[in-house]
Design a protein around this nucleic acid. Sequence first.
DNA 1: ACTTACGGTAAGCAATTGCTTACCATTAAA
DNA 2: TTTAATGGTAAGCAATTGCTTACCGTAAGT
Lengths: 107, 107
Amino acid sequence: MQKTGQHEKAFNALGDPMRRLIFEKLRSRPLSVADIAHGLPVSRPAVSQHIRILKDARLIRVRRSGTRNFCEIDPDGVLAMRIYLDNFWDTALAAFKTVAENQTDDE
Amino acid sequence: MQKTGQHEKAFNALGDPMRRLIFEKLRSRPLSVADIAHGLPVSRPAVSQHIRILKDARLIRVRRSGTRNFCEIDPDGVLAMRIYLDNFWDTALAAFKTVAENQTDDE
DNA sequence: ACTTACGGTAAGCAATTGCTTACCATTAAA
DNA sequence: TTTAATGGTAAGCAATTGCTTACCGTAAGT
């Protein structure tokens, strides 16, 4: 009973360029919200809102430390997308084969 | 020199629920535009517009046959996303390790 | 030639989304 | 305790996006 689409929210979250940018920033190391906002062409509250969406999609995790919120990649959401795409890939290629066979249906 | 982000358009395209639905419909077999629209809660022109975006993202291909346009999965866009995520996965996990090591920095 | 099926495009509208500026709460430093 | 740093949330606005209807072109069928 897999709860329909953990990947749905993830795709939705990464559908936005700014969120992909934030996601990329966290690729190599955890950063505080302010750190993330620094250098981005949007305000800090805007970043906060993006962070919530990324968190809901389980693409990042937020860990509080003092007054700062450190964000880091959450493997769960990333894995969900990988699994979905890997699975999609397999069935799509299988379908391709079937079509090819039916097309070369020659005996 | 990889041309910055073939995956960008793909993530953008799959960021929309209706486009994910269309994408899913094509998973097992090619379908005409009308076939895709049939059963969806939106008009056929709406489907046409989604198809263009999916095509631009190289997630689907369109092959004309008589008066019908058959859509099918394009492995290119899917592969681009897979490669991006696989790569992301690797570097993110490597970063996790580094953090863990520095955290247990006890001598 | 007429008609029907298929489907792309444009214009306009409605809903959603992303951003900003407030404002407030919490924690650490003075 | 006062002050500064950090950051979440709300309200409002602007831009984008997705949808519809209308229209037109092309290819098959009659």
